[in-house]
Amino acid sequence: MPIIETRNLRKVFRSVKRYPGLGGAVRSLFTREYVDKAAVEDVTLAMEPGELVGYIGPNGAGKSTTIKMLTGILVPTSGEIHVAGLVPHEKRKENARNIGVVFGQRSQLYWDLPLQESFELLRAIYAVPRDRYRANLARFSEILALDEFMETPVRQLSLGQRMRGDFAAAMLHDPQIVYLDEPTIGLDVVAKEAIREFIAQINEERGTTVILTTHDLADVERLCNRIILIDDGRVVFDGGIERLRNEYGTHRTLVVTLAENCESFDFPHTELVEREGNLVHLKFDRRRITAEQLIRAVTERCTISDVSIVEPELEDIIRRIYLEGYQHQAQAPAPSS
């Protein structure tokens, strides 16, 4: 039974048509012409409890509009949503109890006071029972090491510390589902890792369903077992990272260490990307030529001392999908030998 389910979800934004110039401004006052733009065209998806899903897509693809409908901030134009059995915008307050939200760029902590005070107010807002509140706070302090700055006014915290505080704040009421919007933006490597660790632990310990929207694909690689890719308001990929790699990561790189000098690298379906001393990077299309075929071809021409294959970075794959579209890529990798 999925915890989050949408069917043909669609959101159209309507705005009054504007005309240029002063005359145009006056004209806009009296005419009622609208421009409709669909931010989310057609999104159908389902998530099981305890899943950790990366929801990614380029700017303007409809990511945040989808999240806003799931959280009950926006009312869909058409389509269905069920989140933990509720229609979010109809049962906004009940839905709010089930979810936790972290906006990476906007804090919900009170600037002038120590973390403790913000937590107390949130406890009251979510009506968290005292013992539950205390237990959660103790556990989060442990994982996030909140104790070192619990008494410091939030305005004096570093971005990483503040983010840790925001995570604890979003989790105090034991939400079943957590929406994380760019949770690691602007953080340094250490802070990023601490946050990722926390997400993984919470997901594992409590079975919390996590939806992560981010531009940092390292977050997704580290945490998510599933990716939903959205572009132009439609889901263009939904599945595991491995499947994404297999279907879209059509190019691999063969790194060859030469034993003695060798000049010619023009192999079929292969491109010389980099040469540094005796280290040669060859990018090949594995639908056309297998690694084995290429290695054989190279050894026929040059003497080599070492060889390795580099998988494409997730980021490269995603970038290619954004740039080139997705349809024509999805062919089974079946090179003819």
């Binding site: 901030i73 307050k93 009940e94 709010a96 109890r97 906006f103 906007r106 807002i125 979510y126």
Partner: peptide
Amino acid sequence: GEFDRVFVRPLNALFQ
């Protein structure tokens, strides 16, 4: 965009 927060908390919006 800060106003979104009001909708994700289980309390009357104006009271918040």
